[in-house]
Simulated scan of single mutants.
Amino acid sequence: MREQLLHKINNKTKPLGSLGLLETIAMQVGMIQGTTSPAINQPHIVVFAGDHGIAETGLVNPYPQAVTAQMVLNFLNGGAAINVFCRQHNITLHVVDAGVNHAFGPAPAGQSGDRFIDAKMGLGTANYLEGPAMSETTATAAIEKGKSIVQAIAGSGGNCVGFGEMGIGNTSSASLIMSAVTGIPLAACVGRGTGVNDEQLQTKINTLGQAYALHRLPELRHQPVALLSRVGGFEIAMMAGAYLQAAEEKMVIVVDGFIASAALLLAQLINPSVVSHCIFAHTSGEQGHEKMLQHLQATTLLHLGMRLGEGTGAALAIPLIRSAVNFLQEMASFESAGVSNIEATT
Rank of each mutant, 00 (worst) to 15 (best):
residue 132 P to N: 14
residue 202 Q to C: 06
residue 311 G to V: 09
residue 236 I to K: 00
residue 305 G to Q: 02
residue 206 N to G: 04
residue 166 M to H: 06
residue 118 D to M: 12
residue 310 E to V: 10
residue 274 V to M: 01
residue 46 V to H: 06
residue 134 M to Q: 06
residue 209 G to M: 07
residue 71 M to Y: 05
residue 346 T to C: 14
residue 280 F to M: 00
residue 92 T to Q: 08
residue 159 N to F: 00
residue 144 E to M: 15
residue 195 G to V: 04
residue 150 V to M: 07
residue 265 L to R: 00
residue 12 K to L: 12
residue 284 S to T: 06
residue 121 M to W: 06
residue 73 L to F: 02
residue 221 R to H: 04
residue 64 P to V: 08
residue 230 R to M: 10
residue 298 A to K: 09
residue 343 E to F: 07
residue 184 I to T: 08
residue 244 L to C: 10
residue 144 E to L: 11
residue 205 I to K: 09
residue 71 M to H: 03
residue 63 Y to G: 03
residue 269 L to H: 00
residue 14 K to F: 13
residue 82 I to C: 03
residue 341 N to Q: 14
residue 186 L to M: 01
residue 215 H to N: 01
residue 102 H to C: 10
residue 314 A to K: 03
residue 243 Y to E: 13
residue 29 V to A: 11
residue 243 Y to S: 01
residue 114 D to M: 04
residue 86 C to E: 08
residue 234 F to N: 10
residue 338 G to D: 15
residue 310 E to S: 15
residue 131 G to A: 14
residue 94 H to L: 15
residue 155 G to N: 14
residue 2 R to F: 13
residue 168 I to M: 06
residue 157 G to K: 13
residue 283 T to P: 04
residue 284 S to P: 05
residue 18 S to N: 07
residue 255 V to S: 01
residue 321 I to M: 10
residue 341 N to K: 15
residue 80 A to Y: 09
residue 56 E to W: 07
residue 200 Q to R: 08
residue 71 M to L: 13
residue 12 K to G: 08
residue 104 F to M: 02
residue 46 V to A: 07
residue 262 A to Q: 09
residue 280 F to Y: 05
residue 7 H to E: 15
residue 51 D to G: 00
residue 323 S to G: 13
residue 328 L to K: 10
residue 156 S to F: 07
residue 193 G to M: 03
residue 170 N to E: 05
residue 159 N to G: 03
residue 91 I to S: 05
residue 37 S to E: 13
residue 167 G to H: 08
residue 343 E to T: 03
residue 39 A to L: 12
residue 321 I to K: 14
residue 301 L to C: 12
residue 304 L to H: 09
residue 223 Q to E: 11
residue 319 P to H: 04
residue 147 K to I: 09
residue 154 A to N: 07
residue 67 V to M: 10
residue 199 E to L: 04
residue 262 A to P: 13
residue 33 Q to E: 00
residue 177 I to Y: 02
residue 80 A to K: 05
residue 98 A to P: 08
residue 253 I to K: 05
residue 51 D to K: 00
residue 169 G to E: 01
residue 296 L to P: 06
residue 132 P to Q: 08
residue 288 G to R: 02
residue 210 Q to K: 15
residue 215 H to G: 00
residue 246 A to H: 04
residue 266 L to I: 03
residue 64 P to I: 01
residue 31 M to D: 11
